[in-house]
Design a protein around this nucleic acid. Structure first.
Length: 286
DNA sequence: AACATTGACAACCGCGTATTA
DNA sequence: GTAATACGCGGTTGTCAATGT
């Protein structure tokens, strides 16, 4: 027994959207907003489409502020680095590139960027913890009832944790709390510095790979320490990623004019800068 | 000119997760 | 506490225009 389809397929239109449909959807969302429920939206808006289809059309094509121009080399670089760290978590990657959607980036990656990188002999490697997650996901058997039960248990725990975080009124407290939760990672800057120190014997090539030099034997013998450092850095990035997913942290400081007079602005700027510093300084080692 | 191939991107599908009844 | 429902994500497919033969 499979899951019920998200909507009845009978009488619903599929395929490319017409201008009229786009207009109906845009007008409806302009009047009532996005939060009215996608499932009921098509009926209310007078569309013969599945709610899912409406959401996709809005998010990927009609939503204001989307950047539909060609990808710049800076964006390419950022996508590669984020992919190396996060794997194919396109929505997370898109969240760091204003104006781009997950679908955009995914398509661009699959059709152009990956080929370009392969041609340069520069195929990115995903950080090992992301690779592990991927394997686990693939191996996971499809037993929905058991999983549902397990999920509900896990949901409960997550909800409790979430409530705990929401109760915190001060973002600074939240940052401090989350950092404290990470063992041996109290000082991000120090960790970056330590990490860089460990890699002083390595040099980044133009193609993004790293190569050992005169102290390669030290590098080799400290493999475990290096792994631990990478894991620590990666854990930090995950914590920061969680923080940056907070609405207040969504875009870079220069894009957040409303934060300019906000007491949290400096904190945001620091977290954001440190996040990207970590991405840039460590992605080639993952 | 006709057909085949390729590339880009829009859209669909199934699944996992979050929320609600 | 549980099952049903809704949402969002990532993988995949479909479509169409551009290019090659």
């Amino acid at each position: 027994m499979g899951r019920k389809p998200c909507c009845s397929k009978e009488g619903l239109k599929k395929g490319s959207w017409t201008k009229k449909e786009d207009l109906l959807l845009t007008e409806y969302i302009k009047d009532y907003g996005e939060g009215t429920g996608w499932r009921s939206l098509p009926k209310k808006a007078g569309l013969l489409r599945c709610g899912k289809s409406c959401r996709l059309r809005w998010v990927n094509y009609l939503k204001p502020g989307l950047n539909r121009g060609t990808f710049t080399s800076e964006e390419d670089d950022l996508i590669v680095r984020l992919y190396t760290l996060l794997g194919s978590r396109w929505s997370l990657i898109a969240g760091r590139i204003p104006g781009r959607t997950d679908n955009d980036i995914k398509n661009y990656w699959n059709t152009s960027l990956l080929k370009k990188l392969k041609a340069q002999g520069n195929e990115p490697r995903i950080h090992k913890s992301q690779a592990k997650k991927r394997r686990r996901k693939k191996e996971k058997p499809n037993v929905s009832s058991q999983i549902n039960r397990k999920n509900n248990d896990e949901n409960k725990t997550r909800r409790k944790k979430k409530v705990k975080i929401v109760e915190k009124h001060n973002i600074e407290d939240e940052v401090a709390t989350k950092i404290e939760e990470q063992p041996h990672t109290q000082d991000f800057a120090q960790a970056v510095s330590d990490n860089n120190h460990n890699f002083t014997s390595s040099s980044s090539n133009q193609d993004g790979t790293s190569s050992a030099t005169s102290t390669s034997e030290i590098h080799s013998s400290s493999q475990n320490i290096e792994d631990q450092n990478q894991d620590q850095i990666f854990e930090k990035l995950q914590v920061m990623d969680e923080l940056l997913l907070n609405d207040n942290f969504l875009f870079p400081p220069e894009k957040c004019i409303e934060f300019n007079n906000n007491e949290n602005h400096m904190l945001f700027e620091e977290v954001y800068e440190e996040y990207f510093q970590l991405v840039y300084e460590n992605s080639c080692h993952f």
